[in-house]
């Protein structure tokens, strides 16, 4: 037996050890390289957007871009005011959220505080399917089902309108809001709930006055995720809300969002380096900045609610 130990003495096994350590280092470097690719993606995104927008803003002043109320880059006398696109984005977002936030929140409270485990097991995947349907299918649904349906009570509603796009987008966002809110509420410790029950509170009172406030930062993170989904959603609005950049705050009208504009323009053939080509990057930059603000806000809110317990 002692022969076997001999072979393991440090000097004799030096070569395999060097090879092994080398292999470990190479593997670690490869993995690090893969991890860094995500940083490269971010740098790529910001780099491309800023690079192309920079040429754009050399020809169009930033003040004009932010204040002009008309967006007509493809016309004879082009105007480059981003306000109509932002208004379209905001209106559809508000419509979507005014549907998704109440429904998502109530569904989350119901699932976390009232529903039996069995119902929860069935309902959660069903809701998650909603988030898994391709958005182009939602666009079809909004344009060819919801709009005609809305035209029955609202005969003046145009074929392309922000209302139906926003509503369908709201349905799509429900699972984003409900599943994260539910996770946040279920993370509230049982002893808080029991304290409330011991005082004679009903489940509803406990849910609204104890659980909901305790989970509020997680729930607001869910709302913010919903907002950033709605702001960045493209196909539903491109199909159902139209491609005309019109400055209006009325959801019953047609108007293009930032995303719809990009899709509309890139369907044609854009000459590389032209001002029209650069407009989509400037519009994209605005979009990224909007979602970035929401994402960072959401990141800190989730971090906070994880630290509470």
């Amino acid at each position: 037996m002692s022969e076997k130990y001999l072979k393991l003495s440090p000097t004799i096994h030096l070569a395999p050890r060097i090879i092994r350590n080398l292999r470990e280092r190479i593997v670690e470097l490869l993995l690090l390289g893969a991890a860094i690719s995500s940083i490269a993606t971010t740098i790529g995104i910001l780099g491309i957007l800023i690079y192309e927008s920079f040429s754009f803003f050399q020809q169009v002043s930033i003040i004009k871009f932010l204040t002009d109320t008309e967006w007509s880059p493809l016309f004879e006398n082009p105007r480059y005011g981003v306000v109509p696109l932002v208004s379209g984005t905001l209106v559809t977002t508000v419509v979507a959220l005014s549907l998704a936030i109440p429904l998502g929140t109530i569904a989350a409270i119901y699932l976390s505080e009232f529903a039996s485990p069995k119902l929860r097991e069935i309902a959660k995947p069903c809701l998650e399917i909603l988030a898994g349907i391709p958005t182009v299918v939602y666009g079809y649904f909004a344009y060819l089902f919801v709009t005609p349906l809305l035209q029955i009570p609202l005969p003046d509603l145009p074929g392309s309108n922000m209302l139906s796009a926003g509503l369908v987008m709201g349905i799509m966002i429900i699972p984003y809001v409900s599943s994260i809110s539910e996770d946040a509420m279920r993370a509230v410790p049982v002893h808080l709930r029991e304290g409330s029950y011991a005082m004679g509170a009903t489940r509803l009172q406990t849910a609204l006055r104890v659980v909901f406030p305790a989970a509020i930062s997680g729930i607001s993170a869910a709302y913010i995720l919903g907002i950033s989904r709605a702001v960045g959603e493209t196909m539903i609005v491109a199909i159902a809300a139209g491609l005309q950049p019109i400055l209006t705050w009325n959801p019953m009208e047609e108007a293009a969002t930032i995303t719809a504009y990009i899709v509309g323009v890139t369907q044609g053939d854009l000459p590389h380096g032209s001002l029209e080509y650069q407009t989509i990057f400037a519009a994209g930059l605005v979009l990224v900045l909007m979602t970035l603000v929401f994402n960072i806000l959401g990141h800190f809110l989730t971090k906070r609610y994880r630290e509470v317990y």
């Binding site: 002692s2 130990y5 001999l6 003495s9 440090p10 000097t11 004799i12």
Partner: peptide, 9 residues
């Protein structure tokens, strides 16, 4: 080092 082998004793 080889000489210094673990002695069972």
């Amino acid at each position: 080092m080889v000489e210094n082998h673990p002695s069972q004793a």
